[in-house]
Design a protein around this nucleic acid. Structure first.
Lengths: 249, 249
DNA sequence: ATTTGATCTTTACGATGTAAAGATAGGGAG
DNA sequence: CTCCCTATCTTTACATCGTAAAGATCAAAT
């Protein structure tokens, strides 16, 4: 650990220890109150002392995740990035698990949105069938840290409604896509073994491919293909050899 | 963190600070020197002061991994379990990454052994085709902590020869199995897109299935199947709908 | 205007990884 | 046989982390 951060974490912010009314708008924090440079427009976008911290922390966490990766995402780092004390997040998320879960929920929502819009944009049946898994992998490649949060779980609290709903929506989208592809809607809560196998197979394959790709375990395979072959091409080759399954056979 | 371990880590072992020859065989350590209760058989299995620590640490790490899971596997916990000071592992593994990598190498070797013997035991072509993936998932279910170490990487140093070789052997086994199944041996270092797709698809599917299963993300699907359906049955259904691929079609 | 309660900061504690310096033998050089 | 050398292990120290508890601060309600 230790990332050459120096600065012994104590005495970071001057904070004007004992001066209740020194310069009226002394603005003790610096990283807050940035939007609406003009004074209040009767809407108080950032309520000065509190209110926007929760969103600010989530934004900061996402920024850290994209900049420093999963290892850099600590409670204290998030607080530092947001310009507040290291214990501030506690009141909003309770826990590191809480913050990560809430962040993962955001990730799932964006993830679902990306897949849905990719599906909508497709025209031919074949492209429709390929659109979802391709969007899946594309999202993971574009946001590896977020995908790691979402799936390399361990520290995720699914009892939180936001996370539960977002992840559930993701699973429902997959299930519906498979059902639509097989022209065999799902009845009630039960599944036939065939249906379950189709769903689990599709999910396993795409998830496994994504994990192996992000972990760099497919580079050997890619290097043994004609130079310049992209992961997307490999994925497409995999999908095309699996997806069709014409009624016969 | 904190697992109710109390004991402030200082002043753990009496160690007989200043008594060079108090009772001759004072046995300062307790967790070492256990084999060969009879005195030395001219072979000195455990060289009294050093030598077997490396293996002891790896054993301790594996024990912790199976008992407390991935979160409990820390350098200090391993040292504690082995009955040595918390800095002792440094000299043998250099790093937490070093220890985990070495442990993962052992895991890969056992993993490969399990799959190979499962393959050898199979008789019919169909069972041969199913044996490897089933053994794959079975190993992961039996040793989830170890599988996590091996694949939920992040802290793995593939430049270590032991890990590199063991993981490479695992990949080679998969590749050979696919090649044998397609009756189309691989020529040289290059792969056709079809071959690469077959390999990547097989690996992605089994790995993805395993991850989702270990993370509990397949329980919903399993609960919507006839009660009592096991993960193995689901896996078999998935494989049977994928593997055959008869020459036509 | 005073109190109240939510929000944020300080302070503190145990745990972790890692580095550096001190102790301890096992084994060779003289 | 004695003495030193080197690998091995222990102590000590430090920065960081998550988390809990107590103090400060401000918006708003009474």
């Amino acid at each position: 650990m230790a990332k050459a951060e120096s600065k012994t974490e104590t005495a970071r912010r001057p904070r004007a220890k004992r001066a209740p009314s020194s310069a009226s708008s002394a603005r003790p924090r610096q990283a807050r109150k940035i939007s609406s440079a003009k004074s209040g427009s009767a809407k108080t976008e950032t309520p000065y002392h509190h209110g926007a911290l929760r969103e600010a922390l989530l934004k900061a966490a996402e920024r850290i995740l994209e900049r420093d990766g999963l290892a850099g995402l600590t409670l204290r780092a998030v607080a530092r990035e947001a310009g507040v004390s290291h214990a501030a997040p506690t009141h909003h998320f309770g826990d590191l698990t809480g913050l990560i879960s809430e962040l993962a929920a955001i990730g799932f929502r964006n993830f679902n949105k990306a897949m849905a819009s990719a599906c909508d944009a497709a025209t031919t049946p074949l492209s429709r069938a390929l659109a979802r898994p391709k969007a899946y992998v594309a999202y993971a490649q574009a946001h590896p840290g977020m995908y790691g949060i979402m799936f390399r779980t361990e520290r995720l609290d699914y009892s939180r409604p936001s996370l539960h709903e977002a992840a559930e929506a993701s699973f429902a989208g997959l299930t519906n896509a498979i059902a639509a592809m097989r022209q065999e809607p799902i009845i009630g809560e039960t599944l036939t073994l065939d249906q379950a196998a189709a769903i689990a197979r599709a999910w396993s394959m795409v998830h496994g491919f994504t994990m192996l790709l992000l972990d760099g375990r497919l580079t050997d395979i890619l290097h043994r293909l004609p130079p310049g072959t992209t992961p997307e091409q490999l994925l497409e080759a995999i999908l095309k050899s699996t997806v069709p399954r014409p009624p016969g056979c």
